[in-house]
Simulated assay, not measured.
Amino acid sequence: MNKTKIYQIIRRLTDGMLPESRRRIVVRWLRGQEHVAETDEAMFRIWNEIDGDQVSDEETKVALQAVKRRIGLSERRIGWKQMLWKYAAIILLPLITGLTVWQVMNFRVLESSDMIECYVPLGEQKKIILSDGTEVMLNSGTLFIYPEKFYGENRKVFLSGEAYFEVEHDKENPFVVRTGPLAIRVLGTTFNVKAYPGEDEITTTLKTGRVKVYRTDDETKGLTMNPDDRVVYHNKDDRFELFRVEAEVFTSWTEGETRFVDRPLSEVLKTLERRYDVTFRYDKSINLNEMYTMKFKPNETIEEVMRILMLAGSNMEYSIDGNVVFLRSTGKGGAADR
């Protein structure tokens, strides 16, 4: 498909000229891996041609913003009014999967406080310190939006991705992390939140203190957590699950390690994609539900990681071409299908 044709399709989408049935097909196509370079070029051109208010569909806003993230956006200040329309779509993760969303427009940022947007590219991590002294470690592929200075009775931030928080205690002003349909409210504690776009689960793991995780549209739907609790929220069926874990296992990434304890291969591959900025392609016969327990050290390369993975797994072999890793079932010989 040529660049002109791609541009015309996306332009019709942003203008609201596609019928509902075709719009859904195009949105799914935009989220795929075909014609990425041409799609990015067309969408970036459209982004520069129009104002956010002219885009008729929130999913399209998400796709447009994803382009900016892929071309290397890092950190910059944004006005509060800009944030409300241009960046709300990224934080409203369930929009892209058609689930219930919380209304960011109900969250009012004081005009006196500018927002700062920080995006951490794949393969990188970043630590920032907020105006109240709270320390936040951001994992690969994470978007974090926070005020330059906190005002009012709540300290609110927005997260899309994974972050570890060491929150400065302030009993008068709770600290609130908003991600997808959830809010996580604390006074002073250390905890981890994992909420990547496109994944069904939002997980909160508490290391110290106490936190409350709840639906922003119904605070009665939620749980209060104690140290070493891990709460998993399932987007698809609006359900919370509570587990007792060793919190250090789920926060070891802040020290450069990558650890898995009885995690499916599908989750292992997604995590490695973000850490090493690679893409996995695999045979349909690969068992993505096979469970793995392993630990990778900070300085290990993707080659070393793959050798360990092959030893731990069953009936697999791999090859690496640039930033693409191919997994094949041994003896199958089929081409990678993903």
Rank of each mutant, 00 (worst) to 15 (best):
K126R: 15
I128M: 07
I129P: 00
I129H: 02
L130T: 04
L130C: 09
L130P: 06
L130R: 02
D132R: 01
T134E: 08
E135D: 03
E135W: 00
V136A: 04
M137I: 03
S140V: 03
G141F: 00
G141T: 02
T142I: 04
L143E: 12
F144G: 03
E148H: 12
E148A: 15
F150M: 15
F150K: 12
Y151K: 13
E153P: 11
F158Y: 14
L159W: 06
L159G: 04
L159E: 05
S160D: 07
G161H: 01
G161K: 01
A163I: 02
Y164V: 10
F165W: 10
V167W: 00
D170S: 11
E172R: 14
P174N: 07
P174M: 07
F175D: 01
V176A: 06
V176H: 06
P181H: 09
L182C: 13
I184G: 04
L187N: 09
L187I: 10
F191R: 03
A195V: 02
A195R: 01
A195C: 11
Y196L: 02
P197C: 12
P197S: 11
G198E: 13
T203M: 04
T204D: 04
T205M: 06
K207P: 01
G209Y: 07
V211S: 02
K212D: 14
K212P: 05
Y214N: 10
D218F: 11
E219K: 14
L223T: 09
N226Y: 09
